[in-house]
Design a binder for these strands. Structure first.
Lengths: 206, 206, 206, 206
DNA sequence: CATGAATGAGCTTTCATTCAT
DNA sequence: GATGAATGAAAGCTCATTCAT
């Protein structure tokens, strides 16, 4: 699946160098944008020569892929988390999942932003992965919402759309952090949004 | 306010050509992104020589500005519309404004998307205009929500955040149309979102 | 001899327009240099449209030629002046001619400078004319110097070189006016140089 | 002091390549002039790709600076020479200095010419250096002339102007070599000019 | 006669990528 | 394995010149 060219055979070294690249490039790519960031700059940011860069990467595009892969690898446990919430009461489960997702967005704000801004430069298969992650998230939330409706706790017409909205409001923290962070910390933001969301779908109101 | 360089004095011709540029470039810029779209390509798309482009435009950046200005000029009547809703009942007014804003996003989907993706390439003053439009929208919605709360129709903790959410859900139609349009027409989308939003803030539930 | 293209037949109009061009362009060409001055700028300086320009001129090169021809035409009377000095005593004649030449340089400082700086852009035949004027001047001075030697007033080994030096010292006023004008007015400069020159070649010293 | 951009860190290579550029460009710039000589041509003349050029140089302007710096570096010993003449008799010292300066002009004819023709394209700080060199020369000559006057060997009204004239007559060899070299070798030219100059300022004539 | 819109070749400069060391 | 010098295609932009009005 990971078909990025390398001239090295040492699996360990490949991983070390690629993480070095992903970490270093991420910051610069977010700051300057994919096209405006040159390989020379990226290499310097990664404390690496251009030549070394191309030992572990086949093209500039690959660097972008690497950045996404690196950050997405940090989120493999997310779905496990959603599953682990299965035993909780629907409302509590939903709160936990929202909190977890929103915090995840906060942790990798730059990536979330980069995903939207540079999606056209992202290799098709990597883009697909990114979108997949979102779909999984939405599905998971749909599951919880469905359970809540069946339990009579939630009352929702269009479960799919509500699930989508929740994800969108999470991503919004990345898009508009320059605006929202004037008024809210991430903790405030999560608390208030949970209130609004839960209020909106509860079968029995306050 | 519009200080883009031109070598022409013929006001009419300037407007004609600039509209030609804005129309042609919009499509290409959305498709390929600002950096990937070359002047040569843009000129070709606009059925214009490179020289002619630069007769009416001072730089590539100006083309992006032009694209935004052209599309934003189509929305000058929006605020008037918001004001004209002042006499309606809060719930009805809110429905109308949401519908109007969402439809606006639908009309200029490409622009809304471009604004997010290329904001770093956008000239500061044009970016400001774009953000201003959004702030106005949020303020207008805040006004309606406040009136609704005072009238006892709505029950909202954080009016500002709810207003922001509404705008975000409108913009979402542009960001995720590749995904949403599989399930909804814009008419469906507006109807369902209005239901969700109004449900969430109504003081007296069904 | 003057083979610059025109689309007009009206001899008078041609002359009027070409003088308009020469006057206007001269200033700009001196200020910005031939290559850095664009036709658009030149046309604007001449209060003329680009199209009109090309009615009376075949190319950008022609404009440079025109500028030189215009200014050289103001100097046709120079040789007559030299001839008219034939009856004076050698020393007095030389003084008069030096004064006349140096003043001429002062009058058209910009042109003298332009001739050196843009000679490589000047059409061959016009360049030839410019050089011709200088040769004539040198010859005239040689004539006077020879007469002075024969009369026993001057004592000169290399008449040709001295004549050349005199012309050079005149042109110097144009090359180094930014430096010389700090210390001398043109009147001072002429007076002092005449003293130095005459002193250097006089047979009977002070 | 030398702040030209480079992407290389190898001091030796930088110097090698820059000398290669200076040598190659000098010829072309003199032949075609700064504006008419394109980077493509310059690169070809230097047996270098365009990319390599820009590895060692930040802009076209820098190439001109490089050319001047390269040639001026060959003249650092000139002032030392002037100082070393301090113990000689004034007349002999002056002869030596004139000879040395005139030979210097002959060595770098092209540069002397280029300095006048392209001064408007030369970076301010490099132009300053060029002018400084001339001022130093004039000052040095003034020193010798003053000493000669005090010793009763020379009789000069305006020492400063005579010093200036000497430098001008040296530079003339560069400006008019196409004309002068028909009659004189540089050896002849120096010999004859020394005669004329010394004759002109000697207190006791032949 | 006068205008200036239109053109596209050619300019300077950047940058992803290769490869000899 | 690591380096960075070298490359040249392609970018954004300018400008002399033409020609329809």
């Amino acid at each position: 699946m990971n078909s990025i060219r390398t001239y090295s055979q040492d699996e360990n070294l490949i991983n070390t160098r690629r993480e070095q690249i992903a970490r270093g490039a991420a910051h610069l790519l977010v700051k300057k944008g994919y096209d405006k960031a040159s390989i020379r700059e990226i290499a310097k940011t990664c404390n690496m020569s251009i030549g070394t860069m191309y030992h572990y990467v086949g093209s500039k595009e690959d660097i972008l892929s690497l950045v996404f892969e690196y950050f997405m690898s940090r989120n493999v446990k997310f779905c496990e988390f959603v599953n682990s919430c299965n035993d909780l009461a629907p409302k509590e489960a939903l709160q936990n999942i929202i909190e977890r997702y929103f915090r995840g967005v906060d942790d990798i704000q730059d990536m979330a932003l980069l995903a939207y801004q540079e999606s056209m430069n992202l290799k098709k298969d990597v883009l697909k992965q990114v979108l997949e992650r979102e779909k999984e998230m939405i599905s998971a939330i749909e599951g919880i919402l469905t359970k809540g409706c069946e339990a009579g706790e939630f009352k929702i017409d269009d479960i799919s759309l509500v699930a989508n909205n929740i994800v969108v409001l999470g991503d919004t923290w990345a898009f508009k952090r320059w605006f929202l962070s004037k008024r809210y910390t991430i903790v405030d933001y999560i608390r208030e949004q949970i209130k609004i969301i839960i209020d909106g779908i509860s079968a029995h109101k306050r």
